[in-house]
Design a binder for these strands. Structure first.
Lengths: 243, 243
DNA sequence: TTTTTTTATTTGTCTGACATTTAAAAGTCT
DNA sequence: AGACTTTTAAATGTCAGACAAATAAAAAAA
């Protein structure tokens, strides 16, 4: 397939890169079987453990799947939306948690992208999506809800809004922006008063989407963004931290 | 650290998951050193190669980095924007290429997200970003340019537009949407006439951004989206394929 | 023909060893 | 004492060979 220079550094990484490139440029097709580990070892002139480490790297990115037994082996994996979602969320979450991203910046990015979805969602949303949004609003009105459960429902509400656009690529992209925010949101304690405001805005958004009014949905998302920011600011200043 | 059940399936995956969870929930801090491979092997009651396979999985996601020599080992890695970009682009590209996503859907998602950036970029763009946009427009006007080089410049132009918003989270998210489209765009042959139209729209967008007019930038992005779609449709129908 | 058994192939794992890198400790010289 | 050199120990990177477990295909038996 490809050859590695005898640079003595990280053979398994080089092999993984070679195979990844072959997958990405179409040399290796979905569901195609890779040579067995022994054969790969021979081709690349390395040992089997080295090949295995390379394959595990690819498996970690869902690029291949392996199957034991006769006529088993490693197969090029079709990257499913579900796998892509998962990776997207993991990466986004770590990026936010490890890089001192301000709440303001993360919030801005998230609502900007949601506003990108809103007009499409208002135009196309199914009754199903609307029902989900209403159901989550109802849940958020329950008095006994913990902050964490409130945030989870919030995520579900926004997911429904985004999915209403009926564009799986948008849903995939937004998954990272919306879900990765949850740990940050969980830090905030939602008072009864602030919940009331947020739920009211959620209702306003759902109304706009129901009425197929994309512009109004955008406006109300902006209002929700402002509300969220103000809330975060008050919480952070109360604790003496920066937003 | 954590324990694996004696389910005899994929020990290395279980170990990788255990360590990944420890990183994501904060048990393991950035730059913290993991126990040595031998120690991990003992802790999890597996052999060193199995531990190594687990570590390679994590390394593939840039969650850890390894260093040889005395006081070397595996360290929790701070996920840099660069690494996150790369992963985002890889995942997005594969998702598009492996799942028969229509050009229409991908295009819609990309331009929707770019419109999300446009108002912010119009408000905040630096002279630098504007200069990059103008430079790429100039490059795109060169007659001898190959289709591929034209597409590359197109990506650079849109990257500058997105980066102008000054929000690294948005830039990271958009990287996937914009760059992953390139292989799809490369399929299209740009005639002299179509290039002229696109470059004119790029200029119009740059003008709007220079004038700090976000709404106009959005409108012109929409026009560019319509143009791109029309162009793709004509190319695909000429070849008897669906868009 | 159908069912069962065997067999071969392939991944998953283990053991043990050696090579290479690297920082710190030990030693040596001025 | 201080600066330089050498040694040493610890860690990852790699290799070789082996066995276990799963699995599908081939062979055998009913």
């Amino acid at each position: 397939m490809k050859i590695d220079p005898n640079d003595p550094a990280d053979l398994s990484a080089q092999i993984a890169t070679a195979i990844r490139d072959a997958i990405m440029d179409g040399t290796l097709i979905v569901d195609e079987r890779l040579p067995s580990e022994s054969e790969l070892a021979e081709q690349f002139s390395v040992s089997r453990p080295t090949v295995r480490e390379a394959l595990k790297r690819l498996a970690a990115q869902s690029l291949i799947r392996t199957q034991r037994g006769a006529s088993g082996g490693a197969f090029v994996n079709r990257l499913s939306y579900k796998d892509a979602y998962t990776q997207q969320i993991t990466t986004s979450t770590l990026l936010l948690s490890m890089n001192a991203v301000s709440f303001t910046t993360a919030c801005e990015a998230r609502y900007a992208m949601e506003r990108a979805c809103a007009p499409l969602s208002a135009a196309r949303r199914s009754a199903d999506h609307l029902a989900t949004m209403r159901a989550e609003i109802h849940r958020q009105s329950q008095p006994g809800l913990t902050d964490e459960a409130f945030c989870t429902s919030d995520v579900a509400f926004h997911r429904a809004l985004v999915d209403g656009a009926g564009n799986p690529i948008l849903s995939y992209q937004l998954a990272g922006a919306v879900e990765a925010m949850q740990p940050l949101m969980n830090i905030i304690t939602f008072t009864a008063r602030s919940r009331e405001t947020i739920v009211a805005l959620h209702e306003a958004i759902a109304d706009a989407v129901e009425a197929h009014d994309g512009l109004m949905a955008c406006d109300r998302l902006s209002a929700l963004e402002a509300e969220t920011l103000a809330l975060a600011r008050s919480v952070f200043t109360a604790r003496g931290k920066r937003a």
